[in-house]
Design a protein around this nucleic acid. Structure first.
Lengths: 284, 284
DNA sequence: GGAACCTGTATGATCGATAATACAGCTTTG
DNA sequence: CAAAGCTGTATTATCGATCATACAGGTTCC
């Protein structure tokens, strides 16, 4: 029975400070305790505190001013993209027109058992596997691994996949996409995803696994998406439906919210927070 | 400009193997390469590989058989709880009746600026802050931090909060909950959350931030929830509505899925995957 | 201007993680 | 049964992370 495996004290302090910052415990724009104070508080050396602050700075959560102090970055300049949940896919189609896509890998392989099973494939069937990275303003924010049955994948080319959203290509082939199931979860970045998303290994990631079915029940797309949480998150508005005994929340449909750009203003508390009425749906 | 800060080789290998396992690359029940082979493959010592495997084993992803090998854990015994998104809150109310809750902290404090603002409070107003942990089968799976305006919090006691779901208490007070907004994201476990959820610091967590409003627009509850991704995840079914130009996905409502217990069976590929028709809604 | 604070940087000592190696005990295979 | 492969365990050496300390230079405040 060995003692604890303490994975880096610097990381520990980094996480602790990060929590306090995102929780609003340390107000934006405020100065956080000096390095010597932090070192004493957490019983570590100043060098270690420094490395924790380095991580925070690299993440843009904190700004250092030599001689003055370290401050919580005021304008959260890198506001995450907001995906309305009731409408993720079409949202992605829109984004396919305003973001860049890098195709990292493309080929036909035998699928892992779990994926072949979820697509309802017979044992021998192969799939087209592709790995793509989506960039917004030149910065990567999602890492997409898709598996598509071979017969469907052959209806478009590698170049087309790099240029147009996959769902669009699938529909172009005549397949009707009728139903999908998806699951949202969290993981840590593995080596490939970390490299592609410009992150440290072990960074947190949002995951979305979606399987799209055509009306017959056949699976036509298996998507595994990894999102940088600082650049992407899922938002939704809920309204109450049913009453009393059967109370339940339901996503407010047809009400896609804008990216909540307000609130960057100082917006003195005491006034009701600004509410963004409607998103501007921009179509080309 | 310093060289790379490599946080633990063992962790790196752990993540790499974990990825391959959950991706189905290494099939469940299969044996993974021997420790010497892994050590050679990743150019590290066997001791390091061992520590990576220790992590996988502690997480239940892998099972070691001395003299034989290390195997991908077959039955994913600890199947995560599935929350249907269209219905999270009432789902939680139901769970409040079948799970344990531990109240870790309770008190009235001045809210962090961001939270006071989101609830629409005046500068001086205080809030009730509580931290709870939810357990299922004695195992913790969620870490909830809630902030409620003082006037509302005073309508129930600390003991009541530990026993009943917060939303129920809020409604009992006569407040009507009409609308809510929520965001889903991912982070790493900080020290407190890690301890409460029985995790290592730096483990990945699913986050849900929800603000509940009464009809007047006043915020009545600010919830920040952290979920263990191995024990909790969000699932939803989507259907296509609208056609062609305005294609969009919408959550399939009134169709709460069961916890998808099937698929534990071997379920030979080639047959259509079993689809669970309806959840059994159990009410007391 | 000067005192008190801060961040930036460097040093050598110390401790933990990793490497290299060896061996014990078990399982599988022939 | 014997050979080959595996996990479990131990030992010593090396390397990197952390510590304790010191000093340089900027900022803030009096």
């Amino acid at each position: 029975m060995k003692s604890s495996v303490e994975p880096l004290k610097a990381r520990r302090i980094y996480l602790l400070l990060r929590d306090r910052i995102v929780a609003g415990d340390l107000p934006p724009g405020g100065r956080l305790p000096g390095e010597p104070a932090l070192a004493a508080e957490h019983a570590v050396s100043r060098v270690t505190v420094r490395r924790a602050l380095d991580l925070l700075e690299k993440e843009g959560l904190v700004q250092r001013k030599p001689g003055s102090g370290t401050f919580v970055h005021d304008s959260r300049s890198v506001r995450p993209i907001v995906a309305d949940l009731s409408n993720v896919l079409s949202h992605l189609i829109d984004m396919g027109r305003s973001t860049d896509v890098k195709l990292l890998s493309f080929g036909y392989v035998a699928p892992p058992e779990a994926i072949g099973e979820s697509l309802g494939l017979k044992p021998g069937e192969r799939v087209q596997r592709s790995v793509r990275v989506r960039l917004i303003d030149g910065e990567p924010f999602s890492y997409l691994t898709t598996h598509v049955p071979e017969w469907l994948g052959l209806t478009y080319s590698e170049a087309e996949l790099a240029a147009r959203p996959l769902l669009e290509l699938i529909e172009r082939s005549g397949v009707t996409t009728e139903r999908a199931t998806q699951a949202i979860n969290a993981t840590l970045a593995g080596p490939e995803a970390a490299a592609a998303l410009d992150l440290e290994i072990g960074s947190p990631l949002l995951t979305l696994t979606r399987i799209v079915y055509e009306p017959s029940g056949r699976g036509v797309e298996h998507l595994h998406a990894l999102y940088r949480p600082d650049r992407y998150s899922f938002h939704m508005d809920l309204v109450r439906i049913g009453d009393d005994g059967e109370r339940r929340w339901s996503p407010a449909q047809g009400w896609p919210r804008a990216a909540t750009k307000a609130k960057t203003e100082k917006n003195k508390p005491g006034e009701k927070p600004t509410r963004t009425p409607r998103a501007i749906k921009q179509r080309s």
